[in-house]
C-alpha cells in the first residue's frame, strides 16, 4: 500500500464507522476539492453508493459554476442532495457584498448561522427531486447528530488540533482545550442528547495528497481550480466577493501537482485567497462559532 492507499483506507474506515454509529448523519459538501474527494471516498466506502445525505449551504454568493457543478454531479451520482440557506439575511441584505456588514459578520450570517439552523432542522432544507430534477422543501427536519466534514489538519492552525470525531455542544461550540481521547481506531461515537459530533475523515490529508488522489482516481472537479487562459486559478473556493484566484498557469492536474511539489507556493497559505481569514480573529473565531 502506498501513502494514498493508506490515507484512503483510514478515511473509508472513518466513514463506515460514522455510518454504522450515527442514525442521523449527513456530509457537508462545499463543492470544493476536499469535500469532493470526501464524496468520492464515500463511494469507495459504500461500493459506488452514497447512503448519506449531502448538505450544501448556499450563501447565494457562490461562484455560479459551483452551483451548476453541484447539481450536475448530484444527478449523475444519484446523490441525496440537500441545501440550506439564511433566507432572512439574504432578503434583508445583511451581507458584506450589500455593504451592510463586515466580512466576518457576513460569514457568520450566511454560513455559520445557516449551517447551524440547517443541521438542527430549525430552518427549511431543500432536497433534490431526481425525477423532476429540481429542489423541493424537505419534509424531514430531524437534527443531524453526526456531521461529516472535509477539513484537513494542514490547512490552517486551528484545524491541526481537530480530532477525527469531535464533539460539539448544543450551541455548536468547540472546546479545544478539553477534547475526548482517541485511542487507536476507536473514536467518540456516543453522544449525549442535544450534542452532535463532527467527523473529519480527511484530517491526515495534505493539499498535495488531495490533488494526487484526484489525479489517480480521475475525480471530476469544478474547473475553477485550473488556469483557463488568464494566468490565474482558484486554490480555495468560496463566495465570489471574498475569494480571489492566485497567480498560476496550471491548466491540468499534473501541472497543479508539479506546482505544489516545486515549492513555488510554499510561502503562500492555501487559503490566502479567502479574504475573511485576514479580518480580526479570522478563521479561528469563526470556527469556534460553528464554522467549518
Amino acid at each position: 500500500m502506498n501513502h494514498l492507499d493508506k490515507l484512503e483506507a483510514q478515511s473509508v474506515y472513518i466513514l463506515r464507522e460514522a455510518y454504522r454509529e450515527f442514525k442521523s448523519l449527513c456530509m457537508l459538501w462545499s463543492i470544493g476539492k476536499d469535500s469532493t474527494v470526501l464524496l468520492w471516498l464515500a463511494r469507495k466506502a459504500f461500493f459506488g453508493h452514497v447512503p448519506i445525505p449531502l448538505v450544501h449551504i448556499d450563501t447565494h454568493f457562490k461562484i455560479p459554476e459551483m452551483i451548476e457543478y453541484r447539481d450536475r454531479m448530484a444527478l449523475e451520482w444519484n446523490l441525496n442532495m440537500i441545501y440550506g440557506e439564511n433566507r432572512e439575511a439574504v432578503v434583508a441584505k445583511q451581507t458584506f457584498p450589500d455593504g451592510n456588514t463586515d466580512r466576518i459578520t457576513c460569514c457568520r450570517h450566511l454560513k455559520s448561522e445557516a449551517l447551524k439552523r440547517t443541521l438542527s432542522g430549525e430552518w427549511p432544507r431543500y432536497r433534490m427531486n431526481h425525477d423532476l430534477k429540481r429542489y423541493e422543501p424537505d419534509e424531514k427536519n430531524e437534527p443531524y447528530t453526526g456531521v461529516i466534514v472535509g477539513v484537513r489538519a494542514d490547512e490552517e492552525g486551528s484545524r491541526s488540533k481537530e480530532r477525527y470525531f469531535s464533539p460539539r455542544d448544543s450551541g455548536n461550540s468547540w472546546d479545544v482545550g478539553d477534547q475526548p481521547p482517541e485511542f487507536w481506531n476507536q473514536f467518540k461515537t456516543d453522544f449525549a442528547p442535544g450534542t452532535h459530533v463532527r467527523i473529519h475523515p480527511l484530517l491526515d490529508w495534505t493539499e498535495l495528497n488531495i490533488w494526487e488522489y484526484i489525479e489517480r482516481e480521475n475525480i471530476p472537479i469544478v474547473s475553477l481550480y485550473f488556469d483557463r487562459g488568464e494566468g490565474t486559478r482558484y486554490r480555495s473556493l468560496g463566495c465570489w466577493p471574498c475569494t480571489n484566484p492566485i497567480e498560476s498557469s496550471s491548466r491540468t492536474l499534473s501541472e497543479i501537482i508539479d506546482e505544489l511539489g516545486s515549492g513555488s507556493l510554499a510561502g503562500v497559505a492555501e487559503r490566502s485567497g479567502r479574504a475573511q481569514d485576514k479580518e480580526d480573529g479570522g478563521l479561528e473565531t469563526l470556527r469556534r462559532d460553528g464554522y467549518m
Binding site: P180, E182, F183, W184, Q186, K188
Partner: peptide, 13 residues
C-alpha cells in the same frame, strides 16, 4: 486492545 466508554466518553483504554 480496547476502549471503555463511560457516560458517552471514552474514559479508558
Amino acid at each position: 486492545r480496547f476502549v471503555i466508554v463511560d457516560n458517552y466518553e471514552i474514559a479508558g483504554g
